[in-house]
Write a protein that binds this DNA or RNA. Structure first.
Length: 250
DNA sequence: AAATAGCTCAACCGCGTACAA
DNA sequence: GTTGTACGCGGTTGAGCTATT
């Protein structure tokens, strides 16, 4: 413990200087990525391994894309976030050259505001009680200092069904019954995610009396069942949500 | 021109997980 | 099964920049 404290205080902190970047770059080119704990010893950098790893991953790595997000990237982040929550590394994985840190910052400084404004504006419940609760809940979540709790989507039935609905991206024709089952699960998922009312959780939205008062933002609902996004979330082996749903695939 | 409020984003921290001994 | 180590992730902080008064 004492050792760890000592080590910490010895590590240089704060912004990286160009000469430090150069040293780190040379180090990685010589020794390769990994073994970050030994970087300071071998390279002479007075930085902790974590700091070096982060600097490499976010700024020095080849093919890092700098500069503002395109409209397409912004749109994808928005959609993926709706689906996956704050899983920045997963979202960043679908944006070549972008890092999880960048996506997270972009969300917090740009898209999160839009999201909150949008929610306030876009629901049409006449008494507006749900709207306020939704926003409060969201802000409360954002302010939480706790480590990431499981996202609602982790446990939602849409990711845990056992009806064998085919989502493996093999371009199989979906019959009407399967499509209907899919849609129902999707509807239930969004009902759950927005957390409109705890009593509604698990209740098929179509059957709920409040259904007529609810809209999914200003886009048609189908945009959130965008096949690309759904495939990305459910159909890829490197996606932990995908792994969940893949477990019941044939 | 100076003060200050607001915003952005690089960097840090703590926790969880994987893996080896 | 336990412990130690390395790594990755998401939440948070704060320095520096910009806009406003």
């Amino acid at each position: 413990m004492e050792n760890r404290k000592e080590k910490k205080s010895q590590s240089k902190r704060g912004l990286w200087k160009p000469e430090e970047d150069l040293i780190l770059k040379n180090y990685v080119e010589t020794y390769g990525e990994g073994n970050w704990a030994t970087v300071s010893k071998r390279s002479g950098l007075m930085r902790g391994g974590k700091s070096c790893r982060l600097r490499w991953k976010n700024y020095l790595r080849p093919n890092i894309k700098r500069g503002g997000m395109s409209k397409e990237e912004e749109d994808l982040i928005f959609r993926m976030h709706k689906l996956l929550g704050n899983r920045w590394s997963l979202i960043a994985g679908r944006l070549p050259g972008r890092t999880d840190n960048e996506v997270k910052n972009y969300w917090n400084t740009h898209l999160n505001k839009k999201s909150l404004l949008g929610r306030k504006r876009k629901t049409i419940d006449s008494n507006n009680q749900h709207n306020d609760n939704m926003e409060d809940n969201h802000i409360e979540n954002q302010d939480s200092k706790k480590p990431r709790q499981a996202h609602d989507s982790d446990h939602h039935p849409i990711f845990n069904t056992t009806d064998g609905f085919d989502l493996d991206g093999n371009k199989q024709e979906k019959d009407d019954e399967s499509a209907a089952a899919w849609m129902e699960r999707a509807v239930r998922f969004f009902n759950y995610e927005y957390d409109l009312d705890y009593e509604m959780v698990g209740t098929p939205l179509m059957m709920h009396p409040d259904y007529s008062n609810f809209v999914f933002d200003e886009e048609p609902f189908t945009s959130y069942t965008d096949p690309f996004v759904l495939f990305e979330a459910f159909g890829t082996a490197d996606c932990d949500v995908g792994l969940g749903i893949q477990s019941f695939l044939p």
